[in-house]
């Protein structure tokens, strides 16, 4: 197991280098940060000075190697736009995204799995058809459109929840979170619900198809024949077997949401990391974009590693060597 973890981390180092190179070159090709920074009326001399100050006059390979050397020393560079260290910028915004994604995940699993198991077990009940209809609709309506509907219904018509922005935060282990006060939570509900809709639909479908498959396995009939109470039959024998695909998808979704919840954050003016990425791409803020992508790649690697480890815990037949 330890070998497996080390090997996976080794492989991901290569992945990170490739990723940084791709983003670095990509940003170089599509935009000229000097032009964006200097503005319309800068002279050629101003531009040259600016380029020299940021090392942008060097050939691309040199720039890239300098960048790599700095990263090894823990320096991800300084934002062209904000003039502040990139990591500071990212970690300032990250908690806002993490908490809203966390809440969405909890909602997704808490609603999706029970709904899925229910529809898997009761295929002919009207409630199952209702669930199936809701999940189809939830899947089909685009994310941003749902967001606008939420704002219209809950903020404009009913006036029960704030439409945009982030509420007051409290300090938790050095992070500024709004999860732990009622007012902050009110601000979080709409963006979290917006992210959760797709999750709930997906988890419902996964849990339903898993349930339908597992319920017909011999061991489920044998467990019934043993006289095991329905609660234990579902909560242990069934759940344990359907969790594996759910863990896979949840891991992938978790990464995607943290990295790219840009649309939701934009609609709700949520000051998260997705919005930072979007702004930085517009302004050709290369250090931010590159550092962001590297961190996100690293995060995907770690989340998937965690998922693999959870598989082995869930299913004794899986052994890594």
């Amino acid at each position: 197991m330890i070998n497996f973890v080390l090997r996976r981390l080794g492989q991901s180092a290569i992945l990170l280098v490739i990723m940084s190179l791709l983003v670095f070159v990509g940003m170089y090709v599509v935009s000229d940060p000097v032009a964006v920074m200097a503005g319309e009326d800068a002279t050629a001399a101003d531009r040259a000075a600016l380029a020299a100050a940021y090392g942008l006059d060097q050939p691309l390979p040199v720039q890239y190697l300098t960048f790599l050397a700095n990263i090894v020393q823990g320096d991800f560079g300084t934002s062209f736009v904000y003039g502040r260290p990139v990591l500071d910028l990212i970690f300032e915004r990250l908690p806002a995204t993490l908490e809203v994604v966390f809440l969405a995940m909890v909602l997704g699993l808490a609603f999706g799995i029970p709904m899925g198991i229910f529809s898997g077990l009761n295929r002919r009940k009207p409630a199952t058809r209702l669930i199936s209809m809701i999940t189809t609709i939830g899947y089909s309506i685009p994310n941003f459109w749902q967001a606008l509907l939420f704002i219209l219904v809950f903020a404009v018509w009913l006036r029960v929840l704030p439409a945009t922005g982030r509420g007051p935060t409290t300090d938790f282990l050095g992070l500024q979170l709004s999860l732990f006060n009622a007012e902050g939570l009110r601000y979080m509900l709409l963006p979290a619900a917006n992210l959760a809709v797709a999750l709930i639909c997906m988890q419902t479908r996964l849990a339903r198809s898993g349930t339908q498959e597992v319920m017909y396995q011999d061991y489920m009939m044998f467990a019934r024949a043993k006289g095991i109470a329905p609660r234990r039959l579902i909560g242990r024998h069934l759940l344990r077997n359907i969790l594996i695909p759910i863990v896979t998808i949840t891991a992938l979704e978790l990464g995607t949401l943290i990295a790219f919840s840009t649309v939701t954050e934009t609609v709700f003016s949520w000051p998260g990391i997705g919005k930072l990425l979007l702004d930085s791409i517009y302004r050709s803020d290369r250090p931010v974009v590159v550092a962001y992508m590297i961190l996100i790649t690293l995060m995907f690697v770690l989340i998937n590693l965690a998922a693999d480890i959870i598989y082995a815990v869930l299913d004794p037949r899986i052994r890594y060597s």
């Binding site: 396995q217 011999d218 061991y219 489920m220 009939m221 044998f222 467990a223 019934r224 024949a225 043993k226 006289g227 095991i228 242990r236 024998h237 344990r240 077997n241 869930l314 299913d315 004794p316 037949r317």
Partner: peptide
């Protein structure tokens, strides 16, 4: 009744037991 008064032995022992427990 199940398990308590009437026990059951299934055809294929390899699939009668839950693989993850």
């Amino acid at each position: 009744i199940r398990g308590k008064r009437v026990g059951y032995i299934y055809q294929n022992p390899m699939t009668a037991l839950n693989p993850v427990l």
